[in-house]
Amino acid sequence: MGKRTVHVSDFSGKVVHSADKVVRIVVLDHPDLVAGPVQLEAEPTEVENIDDAALDVAVVEIHDGQPGEAPRRVVLTASEFDALATDVPMAQLLRTAERVRPAKTSRERIDYSSLEHAGKPHRGRVTEEEARLVRDQLDEVNKRLADEGIRQIDPADPEHAARYGFPTP
């Protein structure tokens, strides 16, 4: 028995007879989009004029300095945005403006000395707090590790014994 996938255009409801003819459209922003980007499928003929309908726009964020408020994102036509520059042409202004560097993302540090994370494999050294927690609550730690599909800690394993301070056999 085999399986057959039928692609249907999200725009028109028509069956797209050839899978290699399906066009995928990712909607990144739309006033009715509430839970992040979505993808739609369509026939190539349904979206062939989409580039002709495209607008030249400027997408800007307005940081007005209000404490605790996120910046506002505004989309306007490029010509409306260009008209804001009255001293120097916008093209020149954009070429000489200060570059914005993306904010560094800080990786959240995992606290391996907590029951939630103790015993998980990691590259750092095992702190005395983590080792004590693993020794004192080995059954609970191993149950959580097994539930998460992670290797369990075996006190008879010389590597685990050394890492978590179990007596060596």
Results as ranks from 00 to 15, higher is better:
Glu80Phe: 09
Val88Glu: 10
Asp147Trp: 11
Asp154Lys: 07
Glu116Leu: 03
Lys143Val: 14
Ala85Glu: 10
Pro155Met: 10
Ile62Val: 10
Thr86Gly: 07
Ala103Trp: 13
Ser113Thr: 03
Ala54Glu: 11
Ser79Glu: 09
Ala103His: 15
His117Trp: 06
Ser106Pro: 11
Asp111Leu: 02
Leu84Arg: 12
Val57Asn: 06
Pro121Arg: 15
Pro121Ile: 07
Gly68Leu: 07
Asp147Ser: 15
Gly124Asp: 08
Pro67Lys: 01
Val74Asp: 00
Gln92Pro: 05
Glu116His: 04
Ala85Lys: 08
Val57His: 01
Arg107Gly: 14
His122Asp: 02
Gln137Thr: 04
Pro102Thr: 13
Leu76Phe: 02
Glu129Asn: 02
Ala91Arg: 11
Arg132Gln: 06
Asn49Ala: 12
Asp87Gln: 02
Lys104Pro: 11
Arg95Phe: 05
Ala85Arg: 04
Val60Gln: 05
Thr45Pro: 05
Ala85Asp: 03
Gly65Phe: 05
Ile150Trp: 03
Glu43Met: 14
Arg101Leu: 13
Asp147Pro: 05
Thr96Ile: 12
Glu80Asp: 14
Arg135Trp: 08
Val47Ala: 05
Thr45Cys: 09
Ile62Arg: 10
Val60Trp: 00
Pro155Thr: 05
Gly149Glu: 08
Arg101Ile: 07
Arg125Trp: 04
Gln92Ile: 11
Val88Lys: 03
Asp64Phe: 08
Val59Trp: 09
Val126Lys: 01
Arg123Trp: 09
Arg135His: 07
Thr77Gln: 09
Arg107Gln: 14
Leu145Ile: 10
Ile110Pro: 13
Asn142Trp: 08
Ala54Val: 10
Val74Glu: 11
Ala146Tyr: 00
Val100Cys: 02
Leu76Gln: 01
Ile50Val: 15
